[in-house]
C-alpha cells in the first residue's frame, strides 16, 4: 500500500486508537488497543503496526487524547478540535457532535466550515460518561457485546432515576432484588445516560442535525436512546471510534 501521508493518535483513557491516512484524508490503516499505562511503548507498537500496513515510516504524527502530552508528537491537539475535524471531514455538515468517551462526554457545536462554535463537557464526575455504563453493566453481568441483544429482548424500559454512578449502582441492585427484568433495566440505564447527555446540549435552533462519535457510538442501544432524547435527528460518524485519531492526522496533513 502506498500514499500514506500522516498518522493520527488518539490516546484515550480507555482505548488507544491510531490511523494512517493518505493525502486526501482517506484512512489506510487502523490500530486499536485498550489503553496501556506504558503509553510510550504502546505508541511505538502502533507506529510499527501502521508502518507494516502502509509500508511507510517517518510520517508526521498528530496526537490527541489525555495521553497526548507524553508522546512527543509533532503536534498535540485537544480531543475537542480533533473530533470536530474528524467528524466534519466525514459529513461536511454543520450541526452538533456528541462524543461519549470513557472519562468525559463532549457536546461540540460545529459551524458551516466545521469550526468549533462552542463546546460543553461533562468531566467532573462519571455520570454521563461511558464509564457509567461500564460500571453498571458489570454489576448486572451483561457483557458489552450483548447489550444490543438485551435491549431488543426488553419488553419495556425500567426507569432508572439516578445518573450518579454510585447511586445508580445501588438503585440497580434494588431493582434486581425487586425482580425487575435485567433487559428492562439495561434499557432504562441507556435512557438515563441519554437524558443526562442531552441535558448538556442545552437549547439549539430547530432543524439542527446531531452526529455521534466515539466508541460508545458502536453501541446501538445508546444510539437508539439518544435518538429519542435529542431534539433533532442523529447519525453516527463513519468509523466512530477513530474520529479523534482521524482529526489528529488531518491536523498534520500539509
Amino acid at each position: 500500500m502506498s500514499g500514506a501521508a500522516a498518522i493520527g493518535i488518539d490516546a484515550g483513557s480507555t482505548t488507544f486508537k491510531a490511523v494512517a491516512i493518505d493525502g486526501g484524508g482517506r484512512v489506510l490503516a487502523r490500530f486499536l488497543e485498550p489503553s496501556d499505562p506504558r503509553i510510550g511503548e504502546q505508541a511505538v507498537r502502533a507506529l510499527d503496526a501502521l508502518s507494516t500496513k502502509t509500508g511507510k515510516t517517518a510520517l508526521p504524527v498528530g496526537a490527541t487524547g489525555y495521553g497526548r502530552k507524553r508522546l512527543g508528537a509533532a503536534r498535540e491537539i485537544t480531543e475537542i478540535t480533533c473530533h470536530a475535524r474528524g467528524a466534519f471531514f466525514g459529513t461536511g455538515q454543520p450541526g452538533v457532535l456528541v462524543d461519549i468517551g470513557g472519562q468525559d462526554t463532549k457536546v461540540i457545536r460545529l459551524g458551516e466550515r466545521g469550526e468549533v462554535l462552542d463546546f460543553a463537557m461533562n468531566d467532573k464526575c462519571a455520570a454521563g460518561t461511558g464509564r457509567f455504563l461500564e460500571v453498571i453493566l458489570e454489576r448486572l453481568r451483561v457483557p458489552l457485546e450483548e447489550v444490543a441483544a438485551y435491549m431488543e429482548r426488553a419488553a419495556g424500559s425500567v426507569p432508572v432515576t439516578s445518573t450518579c454512578t454510585v447511586f445508580a449502582e445501588s438503585e440497580v441492585v434494588s431493582l434486581v432484588a425487586r425482580g425487575e427484568p435485567v433487559e428492562g433495566i439495561v434499557k432504562g440505564l441507556h435512557m438515563a445516560l441519554a437524558l443526562r447527555v442531552s441535558s448538556l446540549v442545552g437549547t439549539v435552533p430547530a432543524g439542527v442535525r446531531f452526529l455521534m462519535s466515539g466508541g460508545v457510538a458502536l453501541n446501538p442501544g445508546m444510539v437508539a436512546a439518544l435518538s429519542q432524547t435529542l431534539p433533532g435527528p442523529l447519525a453516527v460518524a463513519p468509523d466512530p471510534q477513530f474520529t479523534g485519531a482521524l482529526g489528529a492526522a488531518l491536523s498534520v496533513l500539509a
Binding site: I80, T81, F119, M121
Partner: peptide
C-alpha cells in the same frame, strides 16, 4: 480544581 481538565478546556478554547 482539576489542573488537567482545565488545561484541556483552555487549549481547546485557544485552538478555536
Amino acid at each position: 480544581w482539576s489542573a488537567e481538565q482545565a488545561d484541556n478546556r483552555l487549549r481547546a478554547f485557544m485552538e478555536r
